[in-house]
Design a protein around this nucleic acid. Sequence first.
DNA 1: AAAGCTGGTTTCCTTGAGGAAACTGGTTTC
DNA 2: GAAACCAGTTTCCTCAAGGAAACCAGCTTT
Lengths: 125, 125
Amino acid sequence: MYMKKKAILNNNIVCQKRMQAIRDTMEILSGKWKFHILGTLMQSHSLRFMDLLREVDGIGAKMLSKELQDMEINRLVTRRVLDTKPVTVEYEITEHGRTLAPIIDEIAKWGIEYREVLYKKKPRT
Amino acid sequence: MYMKKKAILNNNIVCQKRMQAIRDTMEILSGKWKFHILGTLMQSHSLRFMDLLREVDGIGAKMLSKELQDMEINRLVTRRVLDTKPVTVEYEITEHGRTLAPIIDEIAKWGIEYREVLYKKKPRT
DNA sequence: AAAGCTGGTTTCCTTGAGGAAACTGGTTTC
DNA sequence: GAAACCAGTTTCCTCAAGGAAACCAGCTTT
């Protein structure tokens, strides 16, 4: 008679909470462009739609629009319509959005170190 | 005569490098399962294939196999075949893999705080 | 009035990620 | 010799992400 083995590490409440947290964050940051849009917005006070389209290399209007809507819902960015001659729209990162900076910084840092390791072709790992 | 506007923020070399770094890291960590597999492996000395299949909630054999291969190529985990009665295979996180801990920690931290904010329903944004 | 700007939306299409289930193959236990 | 276990692989399928291009509405310049 065999007892079916069960998960033992990840069945405690702390692990579950952590796993859920990772899932939450990654869902909010899902997609190919959010990091780049956020990174660009973090560098400037505010940007208009067409500015972002130019700044974020390779993105198309549809994806930019969709990602901005996503992030507005999640309060990472704000959208403000200005009453100018041809109507312009300003996007700005929120304080809440700025709290993602440590994540983005860690990811960028890791990527830079990774490239350096590749060049140096580590001796004997 | 209109001059077509060009990107101005992200065209400097530092930004490009940073963008590339983010792209690199996210490609290595791409997919639904890498964070969870890494998180699980970080908590234990080593785990066998079937252990991981049980620990990582919801994953199937195909994806687990594929993700582990990916991560082995990128030197995040090691695979060791043991000469036991029914052959067993041990997976272990590498030192290099452990350097991802700060990223995973930041992501988990942000997700936990995010949930807390949702519950508290912040007073006035 | 034609053309160009802004800020999108809509349509159509392709590709790939991921899942379920069956199968392999070697070993061991019943 | 039948059944079960480990560590996968293979096949088939679905669905969603993402891209290209056309379109739209309001306004301005020429």
